[in-house]
Design a protein around this nucleic acid. Structure first.
Lengths: 334, 334
DNA sequence: TTGTAGGCGTTATCAG
DNA sequence: CTGATAACGCCTACAA
């Protein structure tokens, strides 16, 4: 792979002329243009993005920061973000921080030193100092699926209407005639877990019922905590005919424990998950769930980056998308 | 974030001196060193990797090419590769080609133009022209979990002993007394599917039994094809008391279909998967499976890249790792 | 329309 | 030990 110099020499022109035919839209005489184009082919010239980036101060690189990779939500974010940035001519540089502030900071540091054109953060905690660091740079940044409550109002944010997710779940269950519901939440120090519970609870109360405190168990979004939460519910002798788990993985954990105890789903207990991961359809019974619009979330995030970069006014700084109820087999009329 | 120039000006030295204290191990007088270090702190200087890369012709970037993201095997590769390259001071740039040769080529092109220090390809087909393109460059390249048969013997390769996977599955089933087995394979135009089947079959034959051709169905590694394959087996009235599916996803599909037909696993039919994805433990019954050493595979791949880059002799050009049988609940004595 | 010159931020070489 | 200077590959004034 030759450089511009090689092309120039071969074509008998200066490098700036080569640059012009590469860039296009700058007048070059037809004759020299073809000479240059031929030379380009001969030396197999491809513009070097490093050099170009050094000059133009942008890298066409977008950083994606996730706290985990093997995790339905983040895997989806990775997939769609990569696809979308690609479509816009960018490449994705991926960083898994495992929620370790140390790793987080160190990754952000190299991103900045690579002149990335933007950084997308998945579910970053307000505790992480990185937001502060990034704010002081002028690198476009977007928080996707954010967690904690206290607000950095000026940082662009794409998130789900988590409260609505709770309402949708409660609505579906009460429509089916369930008067006693249980809820397996995510970590309560993450705002989205609280918002989901709040929506769930408030809809139940709006129907004149109440959500028993013994029927609310905290999990960590993962499978094991779903199993454990189910056991806790039984230990507490909580009364319920329906359960909402705030992630499909926890719902699948709950399902496993129910089946091990010989409790039929949905005949005896109805079960709703959340996320609509692929596996929701693979269970027996298939899982009713609250779907997140992963692809649209990523699209909005990338748009926010690109707009900031072009210094276009960003009309909406906080984009909140709606979840959707997907009815399958795991819920039934009481 | 200032540049070296800023630091130099502030410290009253030349840029080369600044460069020296950054690089370390080049003699600089103690006094000027501290002056420079102070200045570095003041202007918040961080060496720019783009510029450094332009000079030194390496980017500390490694490209990972996968044909899919939301897919147990590749998600694992992404996770581990990212972790490992990071540990070595590299960043990962991820490309999902969806097996589209067009996208593949275009991605490789930008990788080369970014001066990546290495490219790791997951399950690349021999049909893709990219291997040829890459061979002509001197960028280190490794094929991970490769598929097709015809050999480019000089390209470093990390793969699984797929034949052994088949043997392990057959061995386990015949140890349990199953004389009639079925197999749901991956796409037969992918070499690893054929090798797996070959191992499976040959072990069965070594026991004086045979694998009925009606009991072999081709899938595509995905859930839906597992469901479909199961139906096909029933339509064909194939006789079997045990099934090996060459991916956990297909096994889960088969399981769903079996359960829908009221056939108990493992009481009536034993079932083995392959991969040992997270969900294998989440099923009821939990899935017996053949585990792939994903992390080690990635480690070897990264090692091969780094060794090539340092121009160290690469002792082993083809690394084949062994799978492992994980016994859970979905298999039982006949 | 084309070439020359300078610079993007680093590092390496060569004097001093 | 330190400072010019050139070079990495590209782009963009400015001049011709």
């Amino acid at each position: 792979m030759g450089s511009m110099k090689d092309v120039a020499k071969l074509a008998g022109v200066s490098v700036s002329t080569v640059s012009r035919v590469i860039t296009g839209n700058i007048p070059v005489e037809q004759q020299t243009r073809v000479r240059v184009e031929d030379a380009i082919r001969v030396v197999n010239y491809r513009p070097n993005l490093i050099a170009r980036g050094l000059r133009s101060k942008n890298s066409h690189l977008i950083g994606l920061v996730v706290p985990e990779v093997i995790h339905a939500t983040f895997t989806s974010f990775i997939k769609y973000t990569e696809e979308i940035v690609n479509r816009h001519g960018y490449n994705l540089i991926l960083g898994n921080t495992q929620s370790d502030p140390e790793v987080e900071e160190q990754f952000i540091d190299t991103l900045l030193r690579r002149n990335v054109d933007g950084v997308i953060f998945c579910r970053v905690s307000d505790k992480s100092r990185v937001l502060g660091i990034l704010e002081r740079t002028n690198v476009p940044i977007v928080v996707l699926d954010r967690s904690l409550g206290s607000e950095n109002v000026h940082i662009p944010l794409v998130s789900l209407n988590n409260r609505m997710a709770g309402v949708l779940a409660a609505e579906h269950l009460s429509d089916l005639g369930h008067a006693q519901c249980a809820c397996i939440t995510g970590p309560m120090d993450i705002a989205l877990s609280r918002k989901r519970l709040e929506g769930f609870k408030s809809h139940i109360e709006s129907r004149g019922l109440s959500l028993d405190t013994t029927a609310v168990v905290e999990g960590d979004f993962r499978f094991g905590s779903g199993v454990q939460a189910m056991r806790t519910l039984f230990e507490r002798r909580a009364k319920f005919s329906a359960i909402w788990a705030q992630s499909d993985l926890m719902a699948i954990g709950a399902l496993q424990e129910l089946q091990r105890r010989g409790i039929a789903v949905p005949e005896e207990v109805s079960l709703i998950g959340m996320d609509d991961i692929n596996f929701a359809e693979m269970m027996v019974p298939t899982l009713t769930t609250i779907a997140q619009p992963f692809e649209r979330m990523c699209e909005e995030a990338v748009q926010l980056i690109l707009r900031q970069q072009e210094n276009k006014p960003v009309p909406e700084n906080r984009i909140v998308l709606d979840p959707e109820l997907i009815i399958r087999e795991s819920t039934a009329r009481k």
